[in-house]
């Protein structure tokens, strides 16, 4: 089987933190699969995706992304970085720049270092940026400044930037948590559809079970840095979801106090 992600026994503690953000996490993702990471805030979803994107240092375990090993001590080589695309929760766009420039920024890893630093995108870079804009339904916004756009429009720009990068693995961190339900459905349709059209693997995190069920093939439940279930979408039980979001119950009079 052709695996996009293969991780085994990953553990990580944020610098200065006491609790582990990831604890003995193992996961595989087949090429072309769509996986939802489901779980409450602080479950370790962002940490896991940041690690897969090669932006985390000092973890333990083994991780292969798109067939190449990740190094816990060094960032991945530049040539491999664009293969993994990341859609950030807060969009992470350059606000005063135009939509087109932001999408072209997704091409920076595919250009030579000289082209990237001195801003001379090739015809092909423009072509890919334009088609990513069209796929995201925002071709008419190309010349607008990002700081004049709505939240839904910004998320489309962020996805267009990711698509322009031509990734084979797309990691999307809470891509719809800032959007209303109608907008959220639109964005996830767009993201998973564009990934399927390109044969790319998608891993997106969410804390909304209904959206996860609708847009993923597989659902991975996370809580307190651990994977608590990993099931095909049809096998997801209400009980498992309820257990995932259960409040930590502290017996009265035990002398313990809840810590958020």
């Amino acid at each position: 089987m052709n695996l996009a992600v293969q991780i085994d026994d990953l553990s990580y503690t944020h610098p200065g933190a006491e609790l582990r953000a990831l604890e003995h996490v193992s996961l595989t993702a087949a090429a072309g699969e769509s996986i939802a990471l489901l779980g409450p805030s602080g479950a370790g979803k962002t940490t896991l995706m940041t690690l897969l994107d090669g932006r985390l240092r000092g973890w333990r375990g083994r991780a292969y992304v798109l067939g190449a090993p990740l190094d816990p001590d060094h960032p991945p080589p530049r040539a491999r970085r664009p293969d993994t695309g990341f859609v950030f929760q807060e969009f992470a766009l350059v606000e005063p720049s135009s939509v087109l420039r932001n999408v072209l920024n997704g091409r920076l890893g595919r250009m030579s270092r000289f082209r990237a630093a001195f801003w001379t995108p090739a015809f092909r870079d423009f072509e890919l940026a334009r088609s990513a804009l069209a796929d995201c339904g925002i071709a008419d916004l190309a010349a607008r400044r990002v700081d004049s756009l709505s939240g839904g429009q910004r998320q489309r720009v962020a996805i267009a930037r990711c698509l322009a990068q031509e990734p084979r693995l797309i990691l999307a961190d809470e891509p719809v948590s800032n959007l209303d339900p109608a907008r959220a459905t639109e964005i996830l349709t767009l993201l998973t559809g564009a990934a399927r059209a390109r044969g790319a693997t998608v891993i997106f995190s969410s804390h909304q079970p209904d959206l996860a069920r609708r847009f993923a093939d597989r659902i991975v439940g996370m809580r307190d840095g651990k994977i608590v279930f990993d099931v095909a979408v049809d096998d997801l039980s209400e009980a498992a979801t309820a257990e995932l979001y259960r409040e930590t119950v502290i017996p009265p009079g035990s002398g313990l106090r809840a810590v958020s």
Partner: peptide, 13 residues
């Protein structure tokens, strides 16, 4: 800082 991380993720030097 977020856009800087985004460009790093895309492979910008």
């Amino acid at each position: 800082r977020a856009p800087i991380a985004a460009l790093e993720s895309a492979g910008a030097g």
